[in-house]
Design a protein around this nucleic acid. Structure first.
Lengths: 340, 340
DNA sequence: GTGAAAGCGCTAACAT
DNA sequence: ATGTTAGCGCTTTCAC
């Protein structure tokens, strides 16, 4: 059984302190130079006694500032996204902002719906990680006057802000490393729905091509969440094309492939098959075979994305756009063999 | 440059439709039986034309219902918590609730602060995963009239609700499995600050004791995030006590220990050392050595915790308490050796 | 079936 | 240095 204490409001505090609501409000918002010291003290005392906390809702309604930002994660369970989220969350805590998080499950349809909800909740800004925005979504956001930044996604649209890494360059890094280790029959595993992965593929294939290596070996996930859908393709590529190395669009894919080839195909990595991933998620170092991968600064990306978003909010998102691109690095571990 | 369309409100819709705000409001809240069909149609048309979305803030202020629930995660990056979070998020989406997430980083101090924020935001309910609540926090919550449910934590306090698994039983499972595989010198690795881990330890040690096996071998993390702090202790236990098997309080610890003993001590798991974890986080199957572990239903726990919370909210959290305890199961993989 | 009026808890002009 | 007043956008009596 709960004893609900009557909701204590600013009016009640004012009454108890013998002043007007305005004066209390001034104290609340730190405009204490406008309040006599004595009065201040009394008010502070009453606030403390009553354990009064102003209603953020009422304040939001009045000021149009909700101190709320929205974060849409493609998949909160993928350590890449949860690491980014941690960066966002920690920074939000510093800035005294609260974060609404939703999981889009890589679905644009769901993301659109979530976007609506966030707009209705009057978030001051949005951080987005799901695939590509279409023009209608950008318009919706702009009409609502809500600034937003894409994380790990780029777009052609000039006015759209993003924080990402140089995926094209990262793909190139992977290709060069394979070639340096003597690999010639190299395949790519990815999903066309994620444009960050597509960029990685482009850089990867371009580097192969420039060195006269066949760049057409590829298996495509129909759904990013369904890695097992390409297991047969992988098997065929290894058998028919004598593939010795795969570049996976991200570590999540790489690790599942690693398990598949080990358990089902009875191949040893890297002895029989080499593998490079992307993202350097926390589990990659602890994988069955420690995974060589391309690292991007996930935590920083989350943190910086929020910092930039705050700038946009502060400036009423007029003026320059935010386009931040980190340089990825190859992390050498044990999943690539040196061929003779 | 953004063109801010004037904020369109219920009054504007009413004016455009030639009716009162009340009538529009009735349409908004689905009380369409109180509205003439013709009128309904007109209003719907105007709403659509104007792309009008009611302000959730204003509605919240008026109704005292925010449709917001708060989720405090001890560590969003630990796959255990992010899997639980996914269960919560998916269910919230079904129920049309929005979720505020914060990361307490296992800090009770920070959690207290976050709790205040959430209360001020008038969340309708709270889901908590950080360690133990103290009485003052429980009181704060009860005074604010906000129902809450603990996930993966139990407490002695009679009135406190939780959704967890039977950690004591899980610990017992691990001990029995080790004994069945012929191990006699068995150690435990955990952290006293997390009471779910303490329960696991208790069940584990009790089972050993009942079989006449020394149950005092143990290394304790000072901070749950700092696994490397016990590496020396582990080394000493193996050397001095001839430990052949460790039960780690969770998979996160187990996997870092797995890496340490492999890389630094040059021991082979399970040939030289056996390991059991807890939680069955997604990476455990993909670890360097697929990890034998105790599984608890993380996604369901998140989902069910929210379902139960909704019941409490609906019933004004009067009446019976929610105490749900899942039965954990041992998942057999490759990290335990059979001794002769 | 519909509308007028009040009010949720706060802040921001505008006095004084 | 402080108070009066109005109003943010909605829902909810209550009246017709």
């Amino acid at each position: 059984m709960i004893i609900m204490s009557k909701n204590i409001t600013i009016g009640e505090i004012a009454r108890l302190a013998g002043v007007s609501k305005t004066t209390v409000s001034r104290v609340l918002s730190g405009k204490t130079n406008l309040v006599k010291d004595e009065t201040l003290e009394i008010i502070l005392k009453v606030i403390k006694e009553q354990n009064y906390k102003p209603s953020i809702i009422a304040r939001s309604l009045r000021t149009k500032k909700t101190k709320l930002i929205g974060l849409i994660l493609a998949d909160i369970e993928n350590p890449f996204y949860s690491r980014v989220a941690k960066g966002v969350l920690d920074e939000a805590e510093n800035l005294n902002y609260t974060v609404i998080i939703s999981n889009s499950n890589y679905s644009i349809t769901l993301e659109k719906k979530l976007l609506e909800t966030f707009i209705n909740r009057q978030v001051e800004g949005l951080l987005l990680t799901t695939m590509n925005l279409d023009e209608s979504m950008v318009q919706t956001l702009q009409r609502a006057g809500i600034p937003f930044i894409l994380i790990d996604i780029k777009t052609g649209m000039e006015s759209v802000n993003y924080v990402t890494n140089d995926n094209y360059y990262g793909g190139k890094l992977a290709a060069e490393y394979f070639m340096q280790k003597g690999h010639k029959n190299i395949g790519y595993l990815g999903c066309e729905k994620l444009n960050s992965l597509e960029e990685r593929k482009l850089g990867f294939k371009k580097a192969l091509q420039q060195n006269g290596i066949n760049h057409e070996y590829e298996a495509r996930l129909k759904e990013i969440t369904n890695v097992s859908g390409i297991f047969n393709d992988i098997k065929a590529l290894i058998r028919d094309k004598k593939i010795t190395a795969f570049f996976a669009g991200n570590d999540y894919i790489a690790i599942q492939v690693l398990n598949f080839v080990t358990n089902e195909l009875k191949l040893k990595v890297p002895e029989d098959l080499s593998l490079i991933g992307y993202d350097n998620i926390s589990i990659s170092a602890a994988a069955r075979v420690p995974l060589t991968t391309i690292m991007q600064p996930k935590y920083s990306m989350g943190k910086i994305a929020l910092e930039q978003l705050m700038q946009l909010i502060k400036n009423n998102h007029i003026g320059g756009t935010t386009k931040i691109v980190f340089k990825p690095e190859l992390i050498e571990r044990d999943s690539v063999k040196k061929l003779n």
